[in-house]
């Protein structure tokens, strides 16, 4: 006859074996050094830079980073381990840089292809809310959405400010493409998000 102790111990061991199925997926970790760039030349990347500086992380900030920059870093023996691409377009920003949204998308596609080749983790982000999506765009201007389309479905991780996901755009990409997404509510929470992401 099986006594109570045996039943309890057996249950405990079974639960221990099955526990990984119930536990939350551990947050993906990223490594430094990180390259921060933009797809659309919006002011968003500055937010990333501010927190990287405060956290004293090893980062490089280049709004017009190219595949050649990744190659050069690798050749110098200091390859980037992760790449943060901040989506959201600014016609003013692109105008100032003398580029069009098509130029941006071409650059980012090449950059992402090289990053994948080198095994660099790609983090797609959208951190300026709906003001950097349809609400902030003139009629007929879909440059914000184009930047999201190119970057986010090809990313290894998404970091998104929650109010920019009002229509479920990013959570849908995450579900369909099986890409983990980190949603945060307030701007100042981005610092903690990056800290958890990069701290060992």
């Amino acid at each position: 006859m099986v006594n109570k102790t045996t039943i309890l111990l057996t249950t405990f061991f079974l639960l221990a074996l099955l526990q990984p199925l119930f536990s939350q997926e551990k947050q993906k970790k990223a490594e430094l050094p990180v390259l921060i760039t933009s797809c659309g030349q919006s002011p968003g990347p500055i937010k990333m830079k501010i927190f990287m500086k405060r956290l004293k992380f090893d980062y490089e900030y280049n709004l017009q980073a190219t595949a050649e920059d990744l190659i050069a870093k690798k050749k110098a023996g200091k390859p980037f381990k992760s790449l943060i691409i901040v989506t959201g377009a600014s016609l003013k920003g692109m105008g100032a840089a003398g580029i069009s949204i098509d130029d941006e998308l071409k650059r980012i596609k090449k950059l992402m292809a090289e990053a994948k080749k080198e095994g660099i983790m790609i983090i797609g982000s959208h951190i300026e809310g709906m003001a950097r999506r349809s609400q902030g765009a003139a009629a007929g201007d879909n440059s914000d959405e184009l930047s999201i389309d190119v970057v986010c479905p090809q990313s290894d991780l998404l970091i998104v400010r929650k109010d920019g996901d009002e229509d479920g755009r990013f959570t849908t990409i995450s579900k369909v493409k099986k890409i983990p997404v980190i949603l945060f509510e307030k701007n100042m929470e981005l610092g903690n998000v990056l800290k958890k992401l990069y701290q060992k």
Partner: peptide, 27 residues
């Protein structure tokens, strides 16, 4: 840029109104 971005983030988080940032075009 960094000062304006910090101000924008703090106000949007703490005071309940959204204010963005735009960069002054050089041309």
């Amino acid at each position: 840029q960094e000062l304006a971005t910090m101000v924008s983030m703090m106000l949007t988080d703490m005071e309940g109104f959204n204010i963005g940032t735009e960069f002054s075009p050089k041309n």
